[in-house]
């Protein structure tokens, strides 16, 4: 079963959840990232996601490895969609099962924060008044160490 996937197709949340169901799990925490219409005054019409697919799937696997180190009994599945997404479409679904609920909450939070740091996926906002690649593409944020914190080489 492929636990870490980049897909062009709409995400079926239940499919991601089913991957982590386990007889020793007492909790499944699910994080669903959806397309938001309003960001401050800006109104989104739709989003485009692009990924470096093979590397993105490897980086998702790395997040899974990190979670297994921190929460050894966790089972993790992550699916991220790319392509054109409309308002309220599901962009990412993370499911984590653990024996007890606290670990499931913490691990799913950890997964989404790490996705935003290390997984090569990019979002282009198509606003009502223009478009922009999100993620500080103008280079005003620098990485003194040459990479974001915590990237394993």
């Amino acid at each position: 079963m492929k636990m870490f996937t980049i897909t062009q197709k709409p995400i079926i949340n239940q499919d991601v959840i089913d991957k982590v169901i386990h007889h020793n799990a007492g909790a499944v925490s699910v994080f669903i990232g959806t397309v938001r219409e309003m960001t401050g005054e800006k109104q989104t019409r739709y989003l485009e996601y692009e990924a470096y697919v093979p590397m993105a799937e490897k980086q998702l696997e790395k997040i899974g490895d990190e979670i297994h180190k921190k929460w050894p009994n966790a089972i993790v599945a992550i699916t991220h969609r790319i392509g054109t997404l409309q308002i309220s479409d599901v962009a990412v679904t993370i499911a984590v099962s653990t024996p007890h609920r606290q670990d499931a909450f913490e691990a799913s939070r950890y997964a989404i924060e790490r996705i935003k740091e290390i997984v090569p996926i990019w979002k282009k906002e198509h606003y009502t008044d223009g478009e922009e690649w999100v993620g500080n593409q103008q280079g005003t944020k620098t990485y003194p160490e040459g990479h974001p914190e915590g990237i394993e080489k």
């Binding site: 490897k58 997984v119 996926i121 080489k153």
Partner: peptide, 25 residues
């Protein structure tokens, strides 16, 4: 397909990707 240092040597057959700040999720 792995993050590398800027000092790394690029050899014949390598694939080099430039990764702008990511914005998934």
């Amino acid at each position: 397909e792995e993050y590398a240092d800027q000092e790394v040597e690029i050899k014949n057959g390598d694939t080099v990707a430039f990764i702008p700040p990511v914005s998934g999720g």
